[in-house]
Simulated scan of single mutants.
Amino acid sequence: MMNIAPCLAVSDPLATADFYKKLGFGVLDTGPLDPGHPLLIITHDGKPALMIQGQESLRELLPAMQSGLGCSGIHYFTVADFDTTVERIRPLVDVVQDTVVNHDRTGREFFFRDPDGYILGIFGPDDWGAFRRQTEST
């Protein structure tokens, strides 16, 4: 099965990596780190979740990319202990939408903004076992 990890254009990859580290994410260097074109992998539960790269570096690679930062979506992270995770990160982030029940009433969500304005969501399923069974590869 393929893993999908969006590559986000950011203004300062090292500062963005520090932000995610403060929230408890891991950071992998694609190494050796090229200070002029840093590409870092943000991990969640030991697996790649996001890649971050300087916007100028990405545009050198892909000149057709839209200018400026931005994404018309939400990047979600599923956590087993929603309350603990949200309470830990709430004081460290710009909260966009505090805890709400998700639209299909299977769990709760919390939304915040990273330093470059990307919106991230934390999802906590009401029934973690059922969620794991539903999302496991067959």
Rank of each mutant, 00 (worst) to 15 (best):
D45K: 10
V101C: 07
T106Q: 05
L69G: 05
G54E: 03
D94Q: 15
T106L: 10
V79Q: 10
L92P: 08
G73D: 04
R59N: 13
V93R: 07
V86W: 02
K47C: 01
K21I: 09
L61P: 01
I119T: 15
E56S: 12
P48Y: 03
G121Q: 14
D18Y: 04
F77G: 03
T135K: 14
F112N: 09
D126H: 09
L120Q: 01
F131A: 10
E87V: 07
P115G: 00
A64D: 15
L28F: 05
D126T: 08
P35H: 03
T138P: 13
P63L: 13
I122Q: 11
G121W: 11
P38T: 05
H44C: 11
D83E: 14
D126F: 11
E87I: 05
D18F: 07
R132S: 00
P35S: 02
D12S: 12
D81P: 14
F110Y: 09
L8V: 06
H37G: 04
P32S: 00
A15E: 09
R90F: 00
G73R: 08
G121F: 08
A5H: 08
L23E: 09
I89Q: 01
G121C: 14
I4T: 11
N3E: 12
G70E: 00
E60M: 08
S11E: 06
H44I: 03
K21E: 09
L23C: 10
A49T: 04
V27H: 05
D12H: 11
D94S: 15
E87W: 04
G129H: 10
L120N: 05
P35E: 06
H103W: 04
P38A: 02
F110W: 01
L120A: 05
C7N: 13
H75C: 02
R108Q: 15
K47L: 04
I119C: 10
W128E: 00
Q53L: 02
D12L: 06
M51R: 05
P6E: 03
M2S: 11
L50F: 07
A15H: 06
V101L: 13
G107T: 09
K47I: 01
D29G: 02
L8D: 02
L58I: 03
I4L: 13
V10T: 10
G24T: 10
R59I: 10
D29E: 10
M51C: 01
E87N: 14
I119Y: 05
P115Q: 00
A80W: 04
E109C: 14
T84P: 08
I41R: 06
M2T: 11
G26R: 15
L39A: 02
E60Y: 06
G54V: 07
T16Y: 01
L58R: 07
L62F: 05
Q97M: 13
L28Q: 09
Q53S: 08
D94P: 04
L92F: 00
L14I: 15
T138S: 06
V79P: 10
T106R: 13
I42T: 05
